[in-house]
C-alpha cells in the first residue's frame, strides 16, 4: 500500500482560487444568515410570550387531555356525526365543482396564448391573486353574513376560494398546451371559439380533471374546518365538543376525519389513474 501522496497545496491553491480563497463576504454569508435566523427566532419566542414554565404546564395539560381521549367514543351521537360527515363531503364536492365550472372561462382570459393582450390579462390575474390571498375560513365568515349559518355558506366559501386557485392552475395548463393543434384548426378555417373547443380543450381537459379531483381531496380537509366558524359539516361538531371538553368524542371525530380523508384520497387517486393514466397521479 502506498502512503498518501504529498499534496502540493500551494499549486492547488493557485489552480483553484475560488475554492481556497473565497471572499470574506461569501464565507460570512452562511453564518450571518444563521445568526439572523436565530436572532429572529429568539425575538419571536420572547415577543409571543413563550416561557418554559408555561410550555411545560401546557404540555402536562396536553398529556392529560390525550389520556382523557382514550378510548374514542361517540356516545349516543354517532348518527349526528355521520350526517355531519356526509355534509362535509357534500360541501367539498359541490364547492369544488362550482369553482371549476366558473373558473374555466375566466382562466381562458388569464392565459397568454388565448388573450395575447397583457392589458386585459393583468387585471384578471391580480383579481385571481387577491381571491387566493384570502383564506377559505375568511370567505366562510363573509358568506355566513350573506346566506346565514349552515353548510350552504361552506359550499360558497370553498367555491370562491378555489375559484382563485383554479383560475391560476387552469390558465397555466392552457399556457402549457401545444399550439400546433390550434394552428391546425385555424388553418382549416375554424373560428376563435372552434380553436378553443377543438384545439385547446382536448389537450387541457385531462390535466384539469386531475387537478379538480386533487382539489376535491384537499377540500375534504378544508371542509372539515370551515365548520369551526359555523359553516356546517363535521368541524362544527368538532369545535363544539372541544369547547365543552368532551375529549372522547373529540378523538372519535378526529379519527373519523382521518378515515374519511384517507378514503377520499384512495378513491380519487384511483379515479385520476383511470381518467388520465399514471403520469398525472404524481
Amino acid at each position: 500500500m502506498t502512503a498518501p501522496r504529498e499534496v502540493d497545496t500551494a499549486a492547488l491553491r493557485a489552480r483553484y482560487p475560488d475554492v481556497f480563497d473565497r471572499p470574506a463576504s461569501a464565507r460570512l454569508a452562511m453564518p450571518a444568515m444563521i445568526v439572523t435566523a436565530l436572532a429572529i427566532l429568539v425575538y419571536g419566542l420572547v415577543d409571543l410570550d413563550f416561557s418554559p414554565s408555561r410550555f411545560f404546564a401546557g404540555l402536562s395539560q396536553l398529556g392529560w387531555i390525550s389520556v382523557m381521549m382514550i378510548p374514542p367514543d361517540p356516545g349516543s351521537s354517532l348518527p349526528v356525526y355521520l350526517k355531519a360527515m356526509g355534509e362535509t363531503l357534500s360541501i367539498a364536492l359541490l364547492g369544488t365543482t362550482l369553482a371549476a365550472v366558473f373558473a374555466l372561462p375566466v382562466s381562458l382570459l388569464a392565459a397568454r396564448n388565448v388573450v395575447p393582450s397583457s392589458v386585459l390579462r393583468f387585471p384578471v390575474r391580480r383579481f385571481l391573486d387577491s381571491i387566493r390571498g384570502v383564506d377559505t375560513l375568511i370567505w366562510a365568515l363573509v358568506w355566513i353574513n350573506v346566506v346565514g349559518l349552515g353548510p350552504f355558506a361552506g359550499v360558497l366559501a370553498i367555491a370562491v376560494s378555489d375559484f382563485g386557485a383554479f383560475g391560476k392552475l387552469f390558465s397555466e395548463a392552457i399556457e402549457g398546451a401545444d399550439k400546433k393543434q390550434v394552428e391546425g384548426i385555424r388553418a382549416s378555417g375554424g373560428s376563435a371559439l372552434h380553436e378553443i373547443r377543438f384545439g385547446l380543450l382536448p389537450q387541457v381537459l385531462p390535466v384539469i380533471a386531475g387537478q379538480v379531483l386533487y382539489f376535491i381531496e384537499s377540500n375534504t380537509r378544508s371542509a372539515t374546518i370551515i365548520g369551526i366558524v359555523g359553516a356546517g359539516g363535521i368541524g362544527l361538531q368538532l369545535a363544539e365538543q372541544i369547547r365543552v371538553l368532551e375529549w372522547q368524542k373529540v378523538s372519535f371525530l378526529i379519527l373519523m376525519i382521518l378515515v374519511a380523508v384517507a378514503a377520499i384520497d384512495f378513491i380519487s387517486s384511483k379515479l385520476r389513474f383511470a381518467i388520465i393514466g399514471p403520469r398525472a397521479v404524481a
Partner: peptide, 10 residues
C-alpha cells in the same frame, strides 16, 4: 352532485 346538494342544504 344532486345527493351532495341535498346533503349540503343547498
Amino acid at each position: 352532485l344532486v345527493l351532495a346538494a341535498v346533503g349540503a342544504e343547498v
